[in-house]
Structures are given as C-alpha cells and as structure tokens.
C-alpha cells in the first residue's frame, strides 16, 4: 500500500511546492493533546502490571482491582461519599477563607506604604513558622472541631496567595500607573483595571501552591482527632490493617489534588489568554 502511495505521480496543482528553511525549535513546541494525562496513566499501568505479575506484594500495596472492589463497597455503604463530602467542605472553606484573606492583605500591603509596614513583616514571620507547628496552639484556642481544621487550612493557603500576589502586584510596571494617572481614573478603577489583572499571573501561581497547601493541611488535621472525613477513614483502616481502604483514601486525595490543580490551570489559561509565553 505504502509503495503505491510513494510512487504515484504527484499532481502539481493538488500539492503546491512547500520548500522552506525551518529553524530548529528551541521552545517546547506545540501542546500535546491530553499531554497532562500521560504521566499518571503510565504510573497506573506500572501498578497494574506490577500487581498482575506478582512483583508487588498485596500486603504492601493492594492490587488495583481489589482497590476498585473496596471502593465499590465503600460507595455502596455510602461511607466514601460521606467522608469525601466532609473533607471537601473543609478544604473548600479553608481555601476560600485563605484566598480571600491573602488577596486582600496583598492588595492593601501592595498599594499602600502604611499597609505594607503593618502587614508585610508579620506575614514574613508567619511564613517562617511551619503551619503544622501551629496546630497545638490552634487546638488550644479553637478546640478540635471543624473551626480549628478550617483555620489551619486557611493559614496554609493565605501565605502563598499573599506572597505571590504581592510579588505580582509589585512587578507591575510603573508606566501603567502613569498611564492610569493621565487617563484620570479613580483609585478603584485603577485597582480593577490595572492592579488586579496585572497581579493575576502571580495570584494564579500562588493559587497553585495554595491548593497543594490546603490538601496537605487537610490530610494532617484529618488524621489527628478526627471522627469523620477521608483522613479519619484512612486512620481507621490503618488500625485494622486494611491496605485497600488506605489506598482508596489516597486515591481520593490524589483525585482531589488533580482536580484542584487542573481547575487552577484551566482558570490560568482562560484568565491569561492575553499573554504570549512559552506555555502556548
């Protein structure tokens, strides 16, 4: 078949000559379709093959099909949905509060010198204390209920949001402020049309760190003193030696993380379509 194709005489009108000198590409080139899925699928394949050939001991890591069966059972009993809902509510609440606080603080400290003097120092100090080290104090202050959990997550979220938004805001070129001054816009319009969109790349970068941070904090607060949520389910399974349930929990965490990161990337692509970068 291919030989016939190759020897068939070319119709000059159908295929105009296309001789070009093309430079070697130095950028990463065009986007691969579903490129983001390649790595995870490869890992999944490794797991399946490893379990099927017996290279992975089921006591170390349950087989994928056992995990799927366990997940099915957990869904049937309603436990998985219940735990997932509890965990998701915590993560989303903490994320929302943290993002709002980080953004507002970054804008105040980025736009006013007085605000910067008051806000920037404390945030930098907070940054050097690992979030998880604060948990004992937070438990004393807020108890072991939902309040403490959400606040811990929010604390983990607001720092990266603040740092990156503040940085993005400060790197907006002064010439745009000058333009806004000559155009006679108000301070509010300046924030809306110049500051926020200009700081958006920084904010979104911060958001990606924040999402990861929220998940990390979620895992930790759910494994101490928790009576519900995915983390509680995992802790319980650990006590009874149920590897498969633990893996189901981890998979749920992974899915949460992937979905969150994917959403941020999607927002990034929509919100930053004005940029021309290597990302394409």
């Amino acid at each position: 078949m291919t030989t016939i194709e190759a020897t068939r005489p070319r119709l000059p009108s159908a295929e105009p000559a296309d001789d070009r000198v093309v430079r070697r590409r130095l950028g990463p080139g065009r986007r691969i379709r579903f490129g983001y899925a390649v790595g995870p699928v490869a890992l999944l394949a490794l797991w399946v093959v490893g379990s099927a050939t017996g290279l992975i001991d089921p006591r170390t890591l349950s087989e994928p099909w056992t995990v799927v069966a366990t997940a099915g059972g957990l869904i049937e009993s309603g436990r998985l949905q219940e735990s997932l809902a509890t965990s998701a509510v915590r993560a989303v609440l903490g994320l929302l509060i943290g993002v709002a606080a980080g953004t507002v603080l970054a804008i105040v400290s980025g736009l006013s010198r007085l605000g910067e003097s008051f806000i920037d120092g404390p945030v930098q100090i907070k940054r050097s204390i690992p979030n998880l080290a604060l948990i004992p104090l937070l438990i004393l202050w807020f108890g072991i209920g939902e309040e403490m959990k959400v606040i811990t997550i929010a604390l983990g979220v607001f720092v990266p949001i603040y740092i990156h938004t503040h940085n993005g805001l400060r790197s907006i070129e002064g010439k745009y402020a000058e333009l806004a001054e000559t155009a006679g816009v108000s301070r509010g319009e300046f924030v809306r049309h110049v500051v926020l969109p200009g700081a958006m790349p920084g904010f979104l970068l911060g958001l990606r760190f924040a999402v990861t941070g929220a998940l990390l904090a979620l895992v930790v607060v759910e494994q101490i003193n928790s009576t519900s949520g995915i983390g509680h389910m995992i802790t319980l399974a650990s006590n009874y030696g149920q590897t498969d349930v633990i893996v189901v929990g981890l998979v749920v965490y992974a899915i949460l993380g992937l979905v969150a990161d994917g959403s941020v990337r999607l927002i990034e692509r929509k919100a930053l379509s004005w940029r021309r970068t290597l990302a394409g």
Binding site: L179, V194, G198, W274
Partner: peptide, 18 residues
C-alpha cells in the same frame, strides 16, 4: 514613546480605558 497599551485589555477596552 511606547504605546503603553494594557496588555491584558483588548484594543477597544484600551482605547476606552477610564
């Protein structure tokens, strides 16, 4: 000297800025 268009606004929104 530079056109100083806001890169995150489309041309018409730049023209009517403010």
């Amino acid at each position: 000297q530079d056109s100083r268009l806001l890169p995150w606004k489309r041309v018409l929104d730049n023209v009517t800025f403010g």
